[in-house]
């Protein structure tokens, strides 16, 4: 049962990711990105990462996709009739993607990775309770939490500066 669920959602994830790449309309691409994110959320649930699945749906599928759709609407950049890519770039990108795939494959084949645990560990000490997250965020990962907080502040300031209109710059009026 859980196997067929995995294969179903994995196929759906890959299909909608392919749709993001190949759909001509940017809004349709954003919506298939949304589907891909939701399927990844389901896969997270199957890996017992309930909080992360929830955050993925909330932050990505909620905020990020909405922001993308908003910007597409704002810039009126749906795509429409123009060709999204040429044949030459298609061939070049396919070769580059295949090279990446082969590189990762060779690395996986020749490293120790294949020998590590390929099935679920028997001991059930692994838990993804909220409590575990809180404990590790406020002990082991206390410094990263503060750095992330600072990063968010910097990002907020950066966005404010970027969206400000400067008089001296050669803006299109």
């Amino acid at each position: 049962m859980s196997n067929s669920l995995f294969y179903f959602f994995a196929a759906l994830t890959l299909l909608s990711a392919g749709a993001v790449v190949f759909l001509r309309n940017a809004v349709a691409a954003a919506l298939s990105f949304f589907v891909s994110l939701c399927c990844t959320g389901v896969l997270f649930v199957m890996l017992d990462a309930y909080l992360l699945a929830f955050m993925l749906i909330l932050v990505y599928a909620g905020a990020v996709v909405a922001l993308f759709l908003f910007i597409i609407m704002l810039l009126d950049m749906q795509g429409g009739t123009r060709k999204p890519f040429t044949k030459a770039s298609m061939v070049a990108s396919a070769i580059a993607g295949a090279l990446l795939l082969v590189g990762v494959g060779v690395f996986a084949k020749h490293s120790e990775f294949a020998a590590t645990a390929a099935t679920l560990p028997a001991d059930s000490s692994f838990s993804t309770d909220l409590k575990v997250y809180g404990a590790s965020l406020f002990t082991t990962y206390l410094l990263p939490v503060q750095v992330i907080g600072f990063l968010l502040l910097i990002a907020m300031l950066g966005v404010i500066v970027l969206s400000k209109r400067f008089d001296g710059a050669e803006d299109i009026q």
């Binding site: 790449v21 940017a26 597409i72 999204p84 396919a94 580059a96 993607g97």
Partner: peptide, 13 residues
């Protein structure tokens, strides 16, 4: 697939 799309597409979004 993501890498392929970054190389292929022309719309920045």
């Amino acid at each position: 697939i993501g890498f392929f799309g970054v190389l292929l597409r022309k719309n920045t979004l």
